[in-house]
C-alpha cells in the first residue's frame, strides 16, 4: 500500500527544512568544494595525466565524478539518519502512529534524501566548466539521472542504518565506520585498478563504487577508464535500492 499524500508531505517537510537551514546547505556544498580544489589541486602535482590510469584526464577532472558522489553520499546519509534524530526527539512516533504503511514511510524518507542530495549535486555539477570539462546537454541529463539513482540508493541504505540505532550518539560511529570507508573504497579518489586485491574485493561489494563508475561514464563518455559497464552500474544501483527499501520496510514493521 502506498499513501501518496503521506509520501508527499514527508518529502515536503524535508525540502522546507533544507531551504530554511542555510548553514546546512552551505556546509554540505563547502565540503566538496574544499576537496575538489584543495585535495584535487594539490594531488594534481603528484599525479600526471600521462600515467594512463585515468584515461588522459587531469586529476582534478578525474575526481570530479567522485566529488559529485561525495556530495550525494554525505547529504543522502545525513538526511536518512535524521530518522534517528526524529526517534530521539519524538516526531518519529507521530509518524509511526499514523495510518500509513511502513513501506510508504520508508519511500517518503528515501525520496526526501534523494531530492535534497540531487539539488546539492546539481549545484556542484555546475562547476564543470571551471575544471576544463566539456559536457553536452545529453551528458548533463544523464549525469543528473544517475545522481538521482545513486541518491535514492544511498538514502535507502541510510534508512536501513538508521533503523539499527536509537540515539544520535551513534552519528560519529556511522560516519567513521560506514561513510568514510564507503567513500575511499569506491574509486572516487583513485582508480580501483590501483588498489591491492583485498581492497578491490571490498570496492566491488560497495554499491557506491557503481554509482561513481556510472557518473564517470556519463561525464567522460568515451574518454575515460571504467571498472564496469554502464548496464552493470545501473543494474546494481537499482537492485540494491530495492533491497534496501525492502529491508528498511521490514525493519520498520517489526514491533518491540
Amino acid at each position: 500500500m502506498i499513501e501518496v499524500n503521506a509520501i508527499y508531505v514527508l518529502v515536503a517537510r524535508e525540502f522546507k527544512k533544507f531551504i530554511r537551514e542555510k548553514s546546512r546547505l552551505i556546509s554540505t556544498i563547502a565540503r566538496p568544494l574544499i576537496w575538489l580544489f584543495l585535495v584535487g589541486g594539490g594531488m594534481s602535482r603528484l599525479v600526471s595525466p600521462g600515467m594512463g590510469l585515468m584515461g588522459g584526464v587531469t586529476y582534478i577532472q578525474f575526481i570530479f565524478p567522485g566529488i559529485l558522489g561525495m556530495t550525494i553520499l554525505f547529504s543522502a546519509i545525513f538526511s536518512s539518519i535524521s530518522i534517528i534524530w526524529d526517534k530521539e526527539f519524538g516526531l518519529m512516533k507521530e509518524i509511526l502512529v499514523a495510518p500509513v504503511s511502513r513501506f510508504s514511510i520508508v519511500l517518503g524518507k528515501a525520496l526526501s534524501g534523494t531530492i535534497v542530495s540531487v539539488i546539492q549535486a546539481v549545484i556542484i555539477l555546475c562547476l564543470f566548466p571551471l575544471l576544463g570539462l566539456k559536457l553536452g546537454v545529453l551528458a548533463i541529463i544523464e549525469t543528473i539521472i544517475i545522481c538521482t539513482l545513486l541518491s535514492f540508493c544511498i538514502a535507502s541504505l541510510g534508512i536501513v542504518i538508521a533503523t539499527f540505532y536509537e540515539s544520535f550518539e551513534s552519528f560519529s560511529v556511522i560516519m567513521n565506520f560506514i561513510v568514510m570507508p564507503m567513500f575511499f573504497l569506491s574509486g572516487a579518489m583513485y582508480p580501483v585498478k590501483m588498489l591491492p586485491d583485498i581492497l578491490k574485493v571490498l570496492t566491488r561489494l560497495n554499491p557506491f563504487t557503481y554509482g561513481i563508475d556510472a557518473l564517470k561514464h556519463a561525464i567522460f563518455r568515451d574518454g575515460g577508464v571504467f571498472d564496469f559497464s554502464i548496464v552493470t552500474d545501473i543494474g546494481v544501483l537499482l537492485v540494491t535500492s530495492i533491497v534496501f527499501v525492502l529491508i528498511a520496510g521490514t525493519m520498520f514493521e517489526r514491533k518491540k
Binding site: 499513501e3 503521506a6 508531505v9 507521530e94 499514523a98 495510518p99 500509513v100
Partner: peptide, 9 residues
C-alpha cells in the same frame, strides 16, 4: 498541522 493532515489523508 498540515503535516498531520496529510499523514492522516
Amino acid at each position: 498541522l498540515v503535516f498531520h493532515a496529510y499523514l492522516y489523508d
